[in-house]
């Protein structure tokens, strides 16, 4: 499922992602787990929490990141 469809407060694991230097250095790699912290109106960015860091990801980029749900708070 693309991350763009992720639900707030759900936890996901990355299955595949586009090759991007910035994504890589921000810690997005295959197998990385994170929780969706917030979604913005008008196809705004998805904010996710990896550990205790919040990272905002553009909607289109989030559409290219494929994830698998692993839990819901």
């Amino acid at each position: 499922m693309p991350l763009a469809y992720g639900q707030k407060s759900s936890t996901y694991r990355i299955e595949s992602l586009p090759s991007s230097h910035l994504l890589k250095v921000l810690g997005f790699r295959e197998g990385t787990q994170f929780t969706v912290q917030s979604k913005q109106p008008f196809k705004g960015p998805i904010v996710v929490k990896i550990g205790n860091r919040s990272i905002a990801i553009d909607y289109d980029v989030a559409s290219e990141i494929l994830v698998e749900e692993v839990g819901h708070h």
Partner: peptide, 19 residues
Amino acid sequence: LPRIGVLADGILRRIGIQG
């Protein structure tokens, strides 16, 4: 300030620039 950028991104994308 980056938080305002995150909140405004959806609107600003309509005019072709990111938040």
